[in-house]
Structures are given as structure tokens and as C-alpha cells.
């Protein structure tokens, strides 16, 4: 997993911290970029604005996207990721609290590669992250 990056987009600072800990508990010591806002994530991916000095050709191996971000809608961010030729093949897994059927359909319709409901139990959450990382970073062959 050398050189691979995970991009986590999550607006709740508590959950940012918890996800970081859950990744660590799952022995995933990978470079993780954590961003709180959707537009900022887009700037990061396109190497624009605050991230203009980033190498735009280097995309993260996986984007973990929350469905409900403070000001923006996760699905909307996903749609914009898919619209851009540079990022349209980026693996994106939605990591969310909502198990509502409408949200699930909306996410897949917008081009999600996966939809994971975050368990309340921290240990279960950690195992879920381990499974996600194992598949998307190890098993899966990226574009």
C-alpha cells in the first residue's frame, strides 16, 4: 500500500477523530487526508485553490465520503467528481449513518462504488473500515 492515499470527507470533527482512530485500530496506517467540506475536497482532487501546489495527477486510492456534510450534500459532491474527466473513475465509497432506501438509491444513481452504513459500535466500525481498505486498496484493481 506504499504511496497510496485515502481521502476522507467528513464534517463532524468528532467523527474525523474517530475514523482516524478506527483506521489505526484496523492497522491501516496509510496517509489519510481529512477534509471537512465538500468544495474543499473538490479543490484537493483538482489541485486548485488551497491545494494548487499539489500534484493533480496523483489521485487518492479511495475517497470515503459522508452523505450529509454541513453545507453541501455528499451526493452532489459525488456527482461533480463523476462529471470531471480527471476524477470520474475515482473509487468513491459513501460512509454514512443513513440506512434510508432513498439515500442509498440516490448515491448509487450518482455513481457511488459502495455504500457503507457506519455502525454505532466502534469495534464494528473499525472492522468495517478494515474490510473496505482490504478490498479497495488490496484486492481491487484500480483504473
Amino acid at each position: 500500500m506504499e504511496g497510496k492515499t485515502i481521502l476522507l470527507v467528513e464534517d463532524n470533527p468528532d467523527h474525523q477523530e474517530l475514523t482516524r482512530r478506527a483506521l489505526a485500530a484496523a492497522d491501516i496506517f496509510m496517509f489519510t487526508v481529512i477534509l471537512g467540506e465538500g468544495p474543499e475536497a473538490l479543490e484537493f482532487l483538482h489541485a486548485e485553490g488551497a491545494w494548487a501546489d499539489r500534484d493533480g495527477k496523483r489521485l487518492p486510492a479511495l475517497m470515503l465520503l459522508d452523505l450529509k456534510l454541513g453545507a453541501s450534500d455528499g451526493v452532489e459532491i459525488l456527482r461533480r467528481v463523476r462529471q470531471d474527466a480527471r476524477t470520474k473513475m475515482l473509487p468513491v465509497v459513501l460512509l454514512t449513518s443513513s440506512s434510508s432506501q432513498a439515500d442509498i438509491s440516490r448515491a448509487y444513481a450518482a455513481g457511488a462504488n459502495g455504500y457503507v452504513v457506519k455502525p454505532v459500535d466502534f469495534d464494528e466500525y473499525s472492522s468495517a473500515l478494515r474490510a473496505i481498505a482490504a478490498f479497495w486498496l488490496d484486492v481491487n484493481v484500480a483504473p
Binding site: 463532524n12 467523527h15 482512530r21 443513513s98 432513498a102
Partner: peptide
Amino acid sequence: LEAFASAVSHDLVAPLRTVDGFAAALQH
């Protein structure tokens, strides 16, 4: 109702995850 359910699942469950997560952090 659908929107309500979606809001409940996000807004009520998210704090619970924080509670459990940080309690787990204490243990750890």
C-alpha cells in the same frame, strides 16, 4: 416520513457513535 427517517438515522445516531467511539477510545 422518508425524509424524517433519513434525518433521524443521521442526526440521532451520529452522536451515539461519538459516545461509543470515545468510550472505546478511553478503554483503548
